[in-house]
Design a protein around this nucleic acid. Sequence first.
RNA 1: UGACCCAUGGUGUAAUGGUAGCACUACAGUUUUUGGUACUGUCAGUCAAGGUUCGAAUCCUUGUGGGUCAACCA
Length: 557
Amino acid sequence: MEADNNEKSLNFIEQIIDKDLLEGKNGSRVHTRFPPEPNGYLHIGHAKSICLNFGLGIKYGGKTNLRFDDTNPTKEEDEYVNSIIEDVKWLGFQWDGDICYTSNYFQQLYDWAVQLIKEGKAYVDDQSAEEISAQRGTPQKPGVESPFRNRPLEENLDLFERMRRGEFANGEKVLRAKVDMASPNMQMRDPVMYRILHASHHRTGDKWCIYPMYDYAHGQSDYIEQITHSICTLEFENHRPLYDWFLDQIATGDRPQQIEFARLNINYTVMSKRKLLELVEGNYVSGWDDPRMPTISGLRRRGYTPESIRNFTDRIGIAKRDNVIEYSLLEFLLREHLNKITKRVMAVLNPLKLTITNYPEGEFEEVELVNNPEDENSASRKLPFGRNIYIEQADFMLNASRKYYRLSVGREVRLKGAYIIKCNDYVADENGEITELLCTYDPETKSGSGISRRVKATLHWVNAEKCIDAEVRLYDRLFTDEDPAGHKEIDFKEFINPDSLKILSNCKLEPSLAEAKAEDKFQFQRLGYFCVDKDSSKEKLVFNRTVSLKDSWAKRK
RNA sequence: UGACCCAUGGUGUAAUGGUAGCACUACAGUUUUUGGUACUGUCAGUCAAGGUUCGAAUCCUUGUGGGUCAACCA
């Protein structure tokens, strides 16, 4: 038993696979697939599915396909295809073989549909969507059969062929599977297999004007690709009998099995492509990659690392019960990774002028700081120090309590990597705003000199003459409510956090940051992790706050 | 008034008939030239009732609570 201590326990899907392997099912192959519909950008919920499917492929020495489930030309676009490909790669995964598209199988799907018609298992229905819907019944009440249900085979064949040829308008006819209108499972009540859509498809153009529905296309696509384990989310559980029914009609060899797991939910955010689209189209955010979005591209722009996201999907586990993960777990894993890899730099977001009155005017010296104390191989760099510096406004307080460790008149602090200073006086403007601090430094206390005494706090700073300017964007959660989409009476957009973005345009950075490029990541000492935004340029540096450092002082207040 | 699924600390997830564990959160402390990191500790859990068993979170029954399903979406 205790030999297993180092081994991670298996989730229920891995247990199923282990059993299948043991029984030699499907020739003991493992072949999964990630099947997004290209109708939006991927979000972190998809990351869970990506890591699961590709992870299983890797773990069992099997394969994983990337398949675009593109059966609805009215919603799908190449822009989405491209973003999905980029996101999967960025997360660190590589699919086997070529990228697959359900649209590649349109002809085969059509042929199988003809076969079903010939076997009397599918029929063309002339009724409107409303009529069909009315006949479907309710979960409690069985449906009634369509008047067209038993039309002759030849007529069905002819009509279906003419549907394909474009002789009918959208909605005029559908092809339905003949299953069971009285089934207690609504999915089995003669589901629609094909609908007429005179729309141009992003890949097949105008070749087709009838398109297969998800239920008819998905399992067959899995079968064509020799998928062994077709993993999807819980809402498809009721579809499984239908998934199997279609396979029963056509499959002769190995066949895939559908396994459902609980989708990811995270508090203080929304996780549906429809709602995210709404945020984008309503300009509530700047786009799919707005750093506040839970999209992969948004997280990337915000400064998340693929490692932290993969780690996250690993920690949350795979199970069947509904779950809401706390955002703090994601942030914990993010900080954990960023703490190891980022260079520490000094940046002052809300500058307050500080003059060291006993430091000679016009003189500078260099002080040395390690780039990352967490990394013993880390190099160090030199920073200019002088008479005039900036510190953070929040690091000075006029009437400071004993719990406040930072600067106040008469108190001492250390300037990180430099000297201990003492605040003697301050200057205020006509409004009482403090505009400048007057301090003296103790030349004996230079960092590394070995001469030191205990001070309560160490502050970050930049040299006022030799710093560079930048814009810094501070992000907070996009929603103020833990479950913005969970209120029946209130639209989720009502909960958008008005303070989710704060732009600081007068930030002062240490000069080494001048060359930073988009997506470069840093720890701004004592403040948090920041990355260069894609809006950044040599002329105007722009940083995003990825996540703040944990702040036990802020909590105490 | 149907079918299917689910139920373990605040959150997530283990334990697969044999000592209820891990992580996050919260709180307290140690270390610290980041009020960070690291480390230590504390609080806190098997939905309920019956049954089977030497022994039940685990198996059975019933109940309770929650989720999904009535797109020509996926």
